[in-house]
Write a protein that binds this DNA or RNA. Structure first.
Ligand SMILES: [Zn+2]
Ligand SMILES: [Zn+2]
Ligand SMILES: [Zn+2]
Ligand SMILES: [Zn+2]
Lengths: 132, 132
DNA sequence: ATCGCTTTTGACAATCATTATCAATAAGCC
DNA sequence: GGCTTATTGATAATGATTGTCAAAAGCGAT
């Protein structure tokens, strides 16, 4: 049977304080900073559980890290800031339709999709000037 | 200046023989199997170069591996078989529009998107029966 | 074809995220 | 309070990717 531990609660709580997606490593650091003595492996396990129970969304960063976020339930997608990690949940009805269509059109079954938009949010105005 | 080596050509050629996305590790194995003595690091470097030059597409597998494929030029997306790796290039005009709209709507700039559909192709009929 | 300068290679070490181990700990239940 | 067993956490192990650097190979000039 699944047991309730303060560690699980701590991870849930820590995730809730986050505005955007975070890695297990980062969340572990945060927790340590706040005085918690939780172990790294436990954070990994808790996040993995939360994700499979649908209490958190997870995605792969372009660099290949697994990132997590406490999310509203139901299928949705994200607009993510590459700088601060801020994530906005967005509807994507058009995309849902497209994905379904494209899969059936090519005879693919059990189709799932990965759809994320990465950019810089308005607070993270990119300090990049292309042309001088 | 960029030099032409047989290693780069070998990687390009090996990529062309692949129907779907492959990892650097796998491509290296393939090459070795065919008698090539190319080094692993070189395969990584070549793939990375090809990707940044637009000669290959790359994406992160759900497991976090970087996968590559020789692709037609121009922006497009993929429908990928989870079993055999077969990849089909698909148009996604609806998605392009959606992505642009959603980014600007939330004040995000320099937006890029990750859009991939994973499923089982018709040849890889899933041997899974849900209900007995 | 040879020389010389630079890029590229490749064997190997180093990173880094994630997972596996496994004895010690602590839920949930009596 | 005890029992049973899931969970924890320090640490080792794994596995993909990148860094190192001396040796090898392009390429333009001779
Ligand atoms: Zn979400
Ligand atoms: Zn969707
Ligand atoms: Zn493609
Ligand atoms: Zn697109």
């Amino acid at each position: 049977m699944k047991r309730n531990t303060w560690q699980r609660d701590a991870v849930r709580a820590a995730l809730d304080t986050q505005l955007g997606f975070v890695s297990a490593q980062n969340l572990h650091s945060s927790l340590r900073t706040t005085g918690s003595h939780i172990g790294l492996a436990t954070v990994y396990r808790a996040l993995s559980d939360l994700a499979s129970e649908g209490e958190a969304d997870s995605l792969q960063s372009p660099e290949g890290e697994s990132l997590y976020r406490a999310c509203s339930s139901g299928h949705h997608h994200h607009l993510i800031c590459r700088s601060c990690g801020l994530a906005v949940e967005v509807e994507a009805d058009d995309v849902e339709v497209w994905a379904k269509k494209v899969a059936s059109l090519h005879g693919f079954s059990q189709a799932e999709h990965v759809v994320d938009v990465f950019g810089y949010c308005s607070s993270c105005v990119p300090a990049v000037k292309e042309s001088a």
